[in-house]
Structure formats: structure tokens, C-alpha cells
Simulated scan of single mutants.
Amino acid sequence: MSEPLLELRNLRKYFPLRDALGRRRGAVRAVDGVSLSVARGTVLAIVGESGCGKSTLGRLALRLIEPDVGSVLFEGEDLRALSPAALRARRRDMQLIFQDPFASLDPRMTVGAAIAEPLRLHRIIPRSGEAARVAELLERVGLRPEAARRWPHEFSGGQRQRIAIARALASNPRLVIGDEPVSALDVSVQAQVVNLLADLIRDLGLTFVLISHDLGVVRHIADRVAVMYLGSLVEEAPAEALFAAPRHPYTRALLAAVPGRGLRAPPLEGDVPSPIAPPPGCRFHTRCPHAEAICREQVPALTGEAHRAACHLQDRLPPAPPLREAEPGGERLRRLQSFFQPAGSDA
């Protein structure tokens, strides 16, 4: 494995709950002791149900949210130890693509001004070169340079997300985190934007963290996959190994839920426990069809090397059922793109 660009060590973030008088009445355990590393030039996907803490983890990695405990290392440098000025300088190397392209662009700024903003903040190029750089970025994401003079409300959702991607690339970052970057888009547009991201990752040599619940997209572009449940990491593995032989019952349940192409596995029963008071032992035991007494009493350690899982029973579980036959994710995306979007038009 190549050298880690980003390392997360035992990150924890609890959001306090207070009553009407401001007194603390508990906390939401959004991220609870997560350790991960992202190798330089690779794509790590973080997956899980809504509320599992994956978006919070992405913001902790960029220090947009301050962790309660733990370290965030970028190229071996602890971001938590940086002064505000040093952190601001570091932000040039780390960018975020937000989920909602309608909310992430300032309606009072033209597209060109929005893309040029990071160029000015970090003083990357002279003002005289901004227009050429903005035009280059727009063309790279599949839009015409004339788009720089228009306003965000004049574009479709897919076009806005392309603009948001161009803005994220403006500072030539080494790390980009995409927080559900296609979930707010129509299916046909999703296909185009995912293919665009895959091309950019390859052509620019980006290190990319994809936060997503769409396992079809994950399978298409991820090198490694980390699975979260109730704020904790339950499995991490190379993408091919995780899809072929998942070791945690929760990962199997996620794959079984993929329409038309999941594992032949029993569906989950029951509701997700409250992150305010997660169950003792393995947090998944209340929904796990294989749970035993030890699962209700002891917290499982995340064990393994290239393929890690946090399950007491991983060595005794029956073999994972095979994936249903389905066309590869990339072919599906390209087929959707060609079907829904006429050649020569932009989404």
C-alpha cells in the first residue's frame, strides 16, 4: 500500500443535548473512536445508513468540526496542532464537495466569482490570470467558459454540481472529500457526474474520500471501503474483497439491500438504536440474525490487516452468499448516461 496521505486516529465527536434551561441531558455519539488511513492516490468510500456518522467523520477529517478526542494527520502533520493561520494555509490542499449543489453556491455570486474565490483566498495566481484559470476549470468539468458570467440559478442540478466540483479543484488540492456528491441528482445525471469524478481522480491523481450510501457508485470508483454503524467502524477492506466476501453481518445486510444486485441474505429487522444510548456490547447485536450472548456483553475489536472487521463471530459465520448476477457498475452508469442524456448536451 502507498504512503498514507490522511490518517484518522481514534476520533470521537459527541454532540451535547440540552434542555430548555441549557442543562446537559446526554449526547449524540456521532463518531465514537474511529481510526482510518487513506493512501495517497486512492479512493476510500465510507458507507452506512443515514445517521451512522459518515458525514460528521468527513468534516472532522477537514477540521470543519473539532473532534473531542483523537488526531487528524495530513502528510504526518497533526491538523489539531496547527494555528489558525497555518490551518488556513493547509486548507488549500484539502477540499470538500457538498451534497446539495443548490445550497453550496452563493446565489449572489456569478459562477466565475465562486470558482475564483479560492484562487484569491490562497493567492494562487495573479488577478490577471483568474479568468483563464476559471475557463480551464469549467471546460475540465464539461461546461463552456461562457458559464462564468452566469448565475447559479440559471443552471440545472447536474450543472451546479459540476460547478461545485470545479470550485473544489481550483486550489489544486491533494485531498478531496465528496459528501454524497450525487445523491441529490437525477439518476441519469448521477451517471454523468460519477463518470466525471472517476476521470478527474484518474487524470489528476487525486486522493478521494467518497461518503455515500449508493453501493453501486462505490463499487464503480472505490479502492477501499469502510463501513460505519452507529458512529463506529465495523468493517474495512479493499473494495473487491468486501463485495466478494463481506465479514460483518451489517455489511452483508447493506449489500442485500441493493435492488436487483445484492447478496441473497435475510433482510434486517428492527430499527436502528438511538445514538444517544447505543446498546452495550456489539452495537449491531439488536438487529443481527447471528447474535450470541458474547455479542450483547463485549465490544468486538476491529481485527485483521488488509481486511478488518469488528465481529465476535466473523470466523464462524456461514460463507457470504454470492452477489446476484448484474452488469458491472461502470457499464450500468454509462448505459444510463447514453440513454437519458443526448450526445452533445450537458447536465
Rank of each mutant, 00 (worst) to 15 (best):
residue 313 L to I: 10
residue 196 L to K: 11
residue 53 G to N: 01
residue 266 P to F: 11
residue 296 R to D: 00
residue 141 V to S: 06
residue 243 F to W: 08
residue 336 L to S: 11
residue 342 P to K: 08
residue 226 A to I: 03
residue 205 G to L: 08
residue 228 M to T: 04
residue 290 H to M: 04
residue 168 A to S: 13
residue 223 D to S: 08
residue 45 A to E: 04
residue 237 A to H: 03
residue 196 L to V: 12
residue 231 G to C: 09
residue 219 R to A: 11
residue 149 R to Y: 13
residue 200 L to S: 11
residue 314 Q to D: 00
residue 244 A to V: 09
residue 228 M to E: 06
residue 336 L to N: 05
residue 205 G to H: 12
residue 265 A to W: 12
residue 208 F to G: 08
residue 52 C to G: 03
residue 233 L to Y: 12
residue 241 A to Y: 00
residue 199 D to G: 13
residue 84 P to G: 10
residue 141 V to L: 07
residue 46 I to W: 09
residue 256 A to L: 07
residue 135 A to F: 07
residue 68 D to Q: 13
residue 2 S to E: 13
residue 53 G to F: 02
residue 318 P to G: 04
residue 127 R to K: 14
residue 198 A to V: 02
residue 130 E to P: 05
residue 25 R to H: 02
residue 82 L to I: 04
residue 19 D to F: 12
residue 179 D to R: 05
residue 218 V to Q: 02
residue 274 S to A: 09
residue 92 R to V: 08
residue 50 S to A: 09
residue 208 F to H: 09
residue 196 L to I: 10
residue 237 A to R: 00
residue 308 R to C: 01
residue 337 Q to L: 06
residue 334 R to D: 13
residue 56 T to H: 04
residue 276 I to N: 06
residue 54 K to G: 12
residue 143 L to C: 02
residue 331 E to N: 11
residue 66 E to C: 00
residue 166 A to P: 04
residue 300 P to Q: 04
residue 22 G to Y: 06
residue 3 E to Y: 03
residue 259 P to C: 07
residue 244 A to I: 09
residue 335 R to F: 06
residue 96 L to H: 08
residue 58 G to P: 11
residue 223 D to I: 00
residue 46 I to H: 09
residue 130 E to Q: 10
residue 243 F to K: 01
residue 81 A to L: 09
residue 240 E to R: 15
residue 329 G to D: 01
residue 31 V to N: 06
